[in-house]
């Protein structure tokens, strides 16, 4: 018994990646970047604002945070809605208090269902990042190209009620097909946040920019998946900030993404600690609180 001979053939074993989506470089050998006002750590708060239909789709897989029980899952549907109605407004207030401009990765369905939220986000100076249609709008290889294109268009059309077309994109569960970078570029988007392989923006081969949204330092990963406390989460963020601020002294500006979720960090017993964290970071002289678009714009002018 043996494996097929092709299993020991390596057609793409060559210098650089085994794909042509983007080129390799080390963050430590690029020209250093600096952020406006002489700041060295861009703190990018990115909120995922999601609507979960009570009828989850498993194609290609069920999105994280989606329904759990047999239909009707009132429990999870309403607990997620709590985040949108209550938790998100706690966050907006917290941002106002700390003087933070954030990005809100928003499902198109939020704009269709709750236009008031979009008005509030825009009025308070935050950015809207397109975050697909709803939590059944997951992209993956297997989704026909025409359907993927239509899904991107639907999301952008719904979110354009903000008066401005989003320039950034976040996929559900960061899942993409082989076509996604091309389709996002064709749809007129400037950047996406799906690839967590770096800590600065970088360009894909087709000109689309990837602004990495870290995979592990999110409230979902730390609190929901790994079951750590909000205090531990806040400690980890501060540890990360300290490290990056120090590294920036010799290597140039860094980005610290805080990827958060209203129904996780916006709960009464967690929000105080999160507010305290924002306050603590906002007092750091190295910190530049910025939206994704601000970071991408500043980075582009330095390339």
């Amino acid at each position: 018994m043996a494996l097929e001979p092709s299993y020991l053939e390596y057609a793409k074993r060559r210098e650089g990646y085994d794909h042509d989506l983007y080129e390799w470089s080390s963050i430590f050998s690029r020209s250093p970047v600096g952020w406006p006002g002489g700041k060295s750590v861009a703190v990018w708060v990115c909120v995922s604002l999601e609507w979960f239909p009570m009828t989850p789709s498993d194609k290609p897989f069920r999105a994280p945070g989606h329904m759990v029980t047999p239909y009707p899952d009132y429990r999870h549907y309403t607990a997620r809605e709590y985040g949108t109605r209550v938790g998100f407004y706690r966050l907006l207030d917290a941002f106002k208090k700390a003087g933070v401009k954030a990005s809100v990765a928003t499902n198109g369905a939020i704009a269709e269902r709750y236009p008031q939220i979009i008005r509030d986000i825009v009025a308070e100076g935050h950015e809207i990042i397109a975050h697909s249609t709803d939590m059944n709008g997951t992209i993956a290889t297997g989704l026909p190209e025409a359907e993927e294109r239509a899904l991107i268009d639907r999301s952008l059309a719904a979110l354009s009620v903000a008066g401005k077309k989003p320039s950034g994109w976040l996929s559900i569960a960061r899942s993409q097909s082989w076509n996604t970078p091309r389709l996002l570029k064709e749809a007129g988007l400037t950047y996406m946040c799906d690839w967590a392989n770096d800590e600065l923006p970088y360009a894909f081969s087709n000109g689309l920019i990837n602004l990495p949204l870290n995979h592990e330092l999110s409230d979902r990963q730390v609190i929901t998946v790994q079951q750590q406390s909000i205090d531990s989460y806040a400690q980890q963020v501060v540890d990360a900030f300290d490290w990056l601020a120090n590294e920036a002294k010799s290597h140039g500006g860094r980005v610290l993404p805080l990827h958060i979720t209203p129904y996780i960090v916006g709960l009464p017993y967690r929000i105080d600690a999160f507010e305290k964290l924002l306050e603590q970071l906002s007092k750091r002289r190295e910190a530049w609180f910025a939206t994704g678009e601000d970071i991408v714009t500043s980075w582009r002018t330095q390339q």
Binding site: A140, T141, R174, S177, N197, H215, E216
Partner: peptide
């Protein structure tokens, strides 16, 4: 996940 598994690959 179906290829490309963006999270799996990019994390590594």
């Amino acid at each position: 996940r179906p290829h490309p598994d963006v999270v799996g690959f990019s994390h590594r």
